[in-house]
Simulated assay, not measured.
Amino acid sequence: MDNDRIEGAAKNIGGKIKEGVGKLTGDAKLQTEGKLDQAEGKAQNAVGGIKDKVRETTAR
């Protein structure tokens, strides 16, 4: 598994937590930051998935 997938998943989870805290406290800026972190995490996870596929294909 590629490190980008691990880091992306961690960013996504961190973003969800940040968004939840923002909702609880009424902090719109924190909510937005959380959503942005989630999007960044999903993108990084996707890049890692592509790298994994390339490795699998070239290893054959």
Rank of each mutant, 00 (worst) to 15 (best):
K16M: 13
G41C: 03
L36M: 12
K23D: 08
K29Y: 08
K53L: 12
L24Y: 07
A46L: 13
G26S: 10
K51R: 11
E19Y: 00
G34D: 13
Q44F: 03
E19G: 02
L30P: 05
L24E: 06
K23E: 07
D37N: 03
V21L: 11
E33L: 02
L36S: 14
E19W: 01
T57K: 13
G41L: 04
G15Q: 01
T57G: 08
V47L: 15
N45M: 07
G48Y: 10
V21N: 05
V47K: 14
A28L: 12
A39Q: 14
T57D: 12
N45R: 10
L30Y: 01
A46V: 04
L30Q: 12
N45V: 00
L36G: 04
A28G: 06
Q31S: 14
K18H: 01
G15N: 05
E19Q: 03
K35S: 13
G20S: 14
T32N: 11
D52S: 14
G34M: 05
K29I: 10
Q38P: 09
E19N: 03
G20Q: 13
K53W: 00
T25L: 13
A28F: 04
K51Q: 10
G41H: 00
K16Y: 07
G48K: 09
Q31F: 03
V54R: 14
K35T: 05
Q44T: 09
D27L: 01
K35I: 09
E40I: 07
K29G: 11
A43K: 07
G49H: 06
E56I: 02
V47I: 13
G41E: 02
G22W: 01
D52W: 08
G22I: 03
G41Q: 05
L24F: 07
A43I: 00
G15A: 03
I50E: 15
K51T: 03
K53D: 14
K18L: 14
K18Y: 04
K35W: 02
A39T: 10
G48M: 09
L24C: 09
Q31E: 15
I50C: 13
Q31K: 12
L30F: 04
G20C: 12
G26A: 06
D27S: 00
D37F: 02
T32Q: 14
D27Y: 00
Q44W: 04
T32F: 07
D37K: 01
T32A: 15
K42H: 00
A39E: 11
E40G: 09
K42I: 06
G48C: 08
Q44D: 12
G41D: 03
K35H: 09
E19I: 00
E19H: 02
N45A: 14
E56F: 02
G26V: 05
Q44G: 05
K51M: 08
G20L: 14
L24H: 05
G15E: 03
R55F: 06
K35F: 11
K42Q: 11
N45S: 14
K42V: 04
Q31P: 02
